[in-house]
């Protein structure tokens, strides 16, 4: 049963990488912004149905929600507009490694400063070691055998 729960986030991760690959291919044909638009557009249609049947919250609550939380959508737009442009140039793996490093750095910063009304979780020695390892990972991505450029 435990194992089954682990499969849920695993499929989520597989979905995100697959999406980046597919949107990269689509973006090559119709444009990056156009690909991001279609992703949100078709996603919104699917979610209209899902929210109707399974939604337990109140979508009208956005009127009362703090304005800063409404910026979530803009950052989603930034992610999905950049990826179809980036993935075909440097490959899905390198793009994902950079994305993950960005995610981890940002989440450490958000925790440390308690940004966006999250709980303050200060930087400790473990996290510093983690960040140093990330920098090491970046070094190896850029270190190419010889002078051969993949692109």
């Amino acid at each position: 049963m435990e194992l089954l729960y682990i499969l849920i986030p695993l499929i989520a991760g597989i979905g995100l990488s697959t999406q980046s690959a597919i949107n990269g291919t689509l973006g090559n044909k119709i444009g990056s912004l156009e690909s991001a638009f279609l992703t949100f557009f078709t996603g919104a249609i699917i979610l209209t149905l899902i929210v109707n049947f399974f939604g337990q919250g109140n979508i009208l609550g956005i009127v009362d929600a703090p304005a800063v939380q409404l910026l979530a959508a803009i950052f989603g737009v930034i992610f999905l507009s950049i990826m179809p442009f980036v993935a075909p140039v440097i490959g899905v793996t390198n793009a994902m490694i950079m994305v993950i490093i960005g995610q981890l750095l940002a989440s450490v910063a958000i925790d440390h400063f308690g940004l966006f009304s999250s709980e303050v979780i200060p930087l400790d020695i473990q996290k510093v070691i983690g960040i140093l390892l990330l920098i090491g990972a970046v070094y190896f991505i850029f270190k190419k055998p010889g002078t051969k450029e993949v692109a």
């Binding site: 939604g55 337990q56 919250g57 109140n58 979508i59 009208l60 609550g61 956005i62 009362d64 929600a65 703090p66 800063v68 939380q69 409404l70 910026l71 979530a72 959508a73 950052f75 989603g76 930034i78 992610f79 950049i82 990826m83 442009f85 980036v86 440097i90 390198n94 793009a95 950079m98 994305v99 993950i100 490093i101 960005g102 995610q103 981890l104 750095l105 940002a106 989440s107 958000i110 940004l115 966006f116 009304s117 999250s118």
Partner: peptide, 24 residues
């Protein structure tokens, strides 16, 4: 750019999560 995309994804998750507490 890919790094900025990743940073955006985390900010989206933090803000979207907080919004989720309010509206579902």
């Amino acid at each position: 750019l890919a790094l900025i995309a990743g940073i955006s994804l985390s900010i989206e998750a933090a803000l979207g999560g907080a919004l989720g507490e309010n509206i579902g």
